[in-house]
Simulated assay, not measured.
Amino acid sequence: MMRHFQKKFSRRRIMKFIALGTTIPLFNILMNYAHASKASKESMQYRDEPNDKEQCSNCMQFIPGKTPEAQGECKVVEGSINSQGWCVAYTKK
């Protein structure tokens, strides 16, 4: 009877469980921090005008506003973003 209990709750299994239990919350905190921190407009050289055919509306990072006239957001740059704007993080869709 004691052997079954010892097999089921070995020291190794307990240590793995503790390690996993502390790693998952830390990973979630780091991922939330990565999503929360965006670069400033200045550091990304953001401007409200396009760079030839490159503009925020056809960039993978751009999140459109609720209406076509509304300012959008960016996954990389903080603040409201003009769909006609451009920055160095531009990545064509």
Rank of each mutant, 00 (worst) to 15 (best):
F27C: 10
L20C: 04
N32T: 15
C59K: 03
R47V: 09
F17W: 10
K66D: 00
C59P: 04
V76A: 12
V77T: 14
S80C: 09
N82A: 13
M31Y: 00
I63N: 06
K92Q: 06
E54Y: 12
A39W: 11
M44R: 15
Q61P: 03
K93C: 01
T67F: 04
T91S: 00
I18L: 13
E49Q: 10
A36I: 09
M31N: 11
K41Y: 04
E73V: 00
C74E: 05
Q71W: 10
C59N: 07
H4L: 15
M60R: 11
H4Q: 08
T23E: 14
S43A: 14
Q71M: 08
S10M: 03
S37D: 08
K38V: 06
M31T: 15
C87Q: 02
I24R: 06
W86I: 04
H35S: 11
K41R: 14
K8A: 08
K8E: 10
E73C: 01
S83G: 07
F17S: 14
E73N: 13
F17V: 02
K93F: 01
V76R: 15
R47L: 10
L30D: 13
E73H: 06
A19H: 01
D52S: 14
E69R: 04
D48Q: 01
D48G: 05
Q45S: 13
A89I: 11
A89P: 12
P50Q: 05
M44Y: 10
C56A: 06
S43Q: 15
S83I: 00
K92P: 00
V77Q: 06
I81H: 03
K75R: 13
S10Q: 05
I18K: 12
R3E: 11
A70M: 09
T23S: 15
I63K: 09
P64E: 04
G65T: 03
E78D: 08
E49P: 12
I24F: 11
A36Y: 10
H35D: 06
E78Y: 02
K8L: 14
T23I: 15
R47K: 15
R12D: 02
N58Q: 08
T22R: 04
R47T: 09
F17K: 02
C87I: 05
S43V: 15
M1S: 15
C74Q: 04
R11P: 03
G79L: 02
E54A: 14
T91N: 01
P64F: 05
E69M: 05
N32C: 06
I14M: 08
M31D: 10
G79V: 01
K8S: 06
M44N: 10
Y33E: 03
M1E: 12
L20M: 13
K8N: 09
F9W: 13
M31E: 07
N28S: 09
Q55R: 10
Y46T: 03
I63E: 10
E69I: 04
Q71E: 01
F9A: 08
E73R: 07
Q55F: 09
F17T: 00
V76G: 11
K92E: 00
M31C: 12
S80Y: 10
I24K: 07
S37V: 14
P64D: 06
Q6P: 00
H35E: 00
M60N: 13
P50M: 07
S10R: 09
K53E: 00
Q61Y: 02
A36K: 08
N82V: 04
N58C: 05
S10I: 03
D48E: 09
I29Q: 04
Q55E: 04
Q6Y: 13
W86L: 01
H4D: 08
V76D: 11
K53G: 05
G72R: 06
I18Q: 13
V77S: 08
S40F: 11
